[in-house]
Amino acid sequence: MASALPGLPLAAAVGEVGEGFFKERTGATLPCQARPSHLFCWDWATEHINRFGTPTVQQFELVVISVLIGFAIAFGLALLAHRFRLLQWPLLAGTGILFAIPSVAFFLLLLPITGTGRETAIIALSAYTLQIIYRNVMSGLANVPESAKDAARGMGLTDRQILWRVELPLAIPEIVGGLRIATVSTVAIATLAVFVNAGGLGTQIYSESNLTFPTAIIIAGGIAMLMALAFDAVFLTVQRLATPWRRAAAEASA
């Protein structure tokens, strides 16, 4: 069997940090750095918090761009499948396959085609969101009460008007729900963009020298989770604002 990680000293991979590591980065050995098993080093953190700025912005950009592209494609596909029922199953299966391929593998499968960099990461991340968004738009449209559509038809709305004025507004909760899940997952997965040199918080978790330094991992991972929670909160608010009738119903029943 071939060795473990190349470029990553074997010792580092099993939990020891090279002697020069902290000096090289901080210029001085802080007390808590003496023990690698020390979970969190506040001193190091306060001193180096700045280095997480750029990766955070990169991560944010990766997520926003990928989800926007993913939404545009998935929404279009869903409208297509809504119009042409025959496409429903193949599209579900197709997006399902993209969804099932682990992101790391997806990134690297694109290497011979798009090389390394942000584009590659964005393609893979967008592809990953397709299934989630597509499925939610479809089920949102499917759950629109037949009576509402029938009434709209009876009032003389065209199919297109019914879609944009009745079906889609009523499907908003599920569509936004899909966006919410897709975005939160993408935040987590975008840390893997480091493997195609696309930047992001992954750079602070996995780089050749600090894989085993828990403080950096915790900070980077923590920022990613906070970002995910922030997106979650934003989408929940959007969902509420976009569906005033649901609030009215909730108030009426309270």
């Binding site: 991979a13 099993v14 939990g15 690698p36 098993s37 979970l39 899940i181 939160v184 997952s185 935040v187 987590a188 997965i189 840390t191 893997l192 480091v194 918080l201 992954g202 978790i205 996995y206 894989l211 085993t212 330094f213 828990p214 991992i217 915790i218 980077a220 991972g221 990613a224 989770m225 995910a228 929670l229 979650d232």
Partner: peptide
Amino acid sequence: GRAVPELAAIALIAAV
């Protein structure tokens, strides 16, 4: 669960 970055999880386990 969705918000947990796998990379951070694995790295942290390896380190700690």
